[in-house]
């Protein structure tokens, strides 16, 4: 395959960037999208140019490092992560636009790499259960109804890649935040911190400069792990409940 790539190049956060066109040839349909970029980078290095920087690590769709907007879609046309997207999803001669996640809360570090530290800070605000090592009761002391355990798991699948924010026209982190809130709040172990968790995490989310939710549903469509849209409504419910119980206390 021969492809025209238009890639966002930006030396560092302080210099302006631009879309730069590259032609790549000899691309196999079996390559992953990132292997295609590896090929481009090998060429660039040998030509003495700066290779394209992009985040990636496990390349099996679970670490959440890879983060490209491909032809306007976060993680490209398939519902998966960029590392699991293969070139057979494209046609010979295609022009492909590759851009970084765009959001004020995710500033560009270099080229296609952005800083997603804001997500870590949202988790730090309350995305945990206070259970110091050694203090745990016997695992079977509290039974968890299977439906609750399954619901917790469904939300816990979030890989923190940031596709939801990248796809949202408002750069909102509601789906990410709601996934963690719902994972922990549905479990009996998470219930003592149920109200403070949601209040603190939503406050942290707002502090990081993410936009508000207008329920466009773009986030859930882009999510490679299928975190469902009703997750947001469930978090709103938790939040309003917490405000009633804890406001002004």
């Amino acid at each position: 395959m021969r492809l025209n790539l238009r890639v966002w190049r930006q030396q560092n956060p302080d210099t302006p960037g631009a879309m730069v066109t590259y032609e790549v040839d000899g691309i196999s349909r079996d390559m992953s999208f990132l292997e295609m970029l590896d090929t481009l980078n090998e060429d660039l290095i040998l030509r003495g140019e700066d290779p394209v920087a992009f985040d990636h690590d496990c390349r099996e769709g679970i670490c959440g490092a890879c983060s490209l907007v491909i032809n306007g879609d976060a993680h490209g046309p398939e519902r998966t992560t960029t590392c699991q997207l293969h070139m057979r999803s494209f046609a010979d001669g295609d022009t492909i636009d590759v851009e970084p996640w765009r959001a004020a809360a995710f500033p560009v570090v270099k080229d296609l790499v952005v800083d997603r530290g804001a997500f870590d800070r949202i988790i730090q605000a309350g995305g945990y259960i206070t259970a110091p090592t050694g203090s745990a009761p016997e695992a079977h002391a509290t039974a968890v109804p299977k439906a609750d355990a399954d619901s917790a798991f469904e939300h816990a699948e979030c890989i923190g890649c940031g596709a939801c924010v990248a796809a949202c026209p408002n750069g909102s982190a509601m789906l990410f935040t709601s996934a963690k809130v719902n994972h922990l709040n549905v479990l009996p172990q998470g219930s003592p911190e149920r109200e403070t968790r949601v209040l603190d995490m939503v406050a942290a989310m707002d502090d990081e400069g993410f936009g508000g939710c207008t329920l466009t549903g773009e986030c859930a469509t882009a999510c490679p792990k299928g975190i469902p849209m009703p997750s947001i409504a469930a978090m709103n419910r938790e939040w309003l409940r917490a405000v009633r119980k804890h406001g002004g206390s």
Binding site: R6, W8, M19, V69, N71, G72, D73, D97, E99, R102, A103, A104, A105, C168, P169, N170, G171, S172, G209, F210, G211, G212, T214, T216, G217, E218
Partner: peptide, 16 residues
């Protein structure tokens, strides 16, 4: 919301 998404994607696509 507008401030949270200051840079638009170069590749436009119809959304929502």
């Amino acid at each position: 919301d507008i401030k949270a998404r200051p840079v638009k994607y170069a590749h436009k696509r119809r959304r929502a």
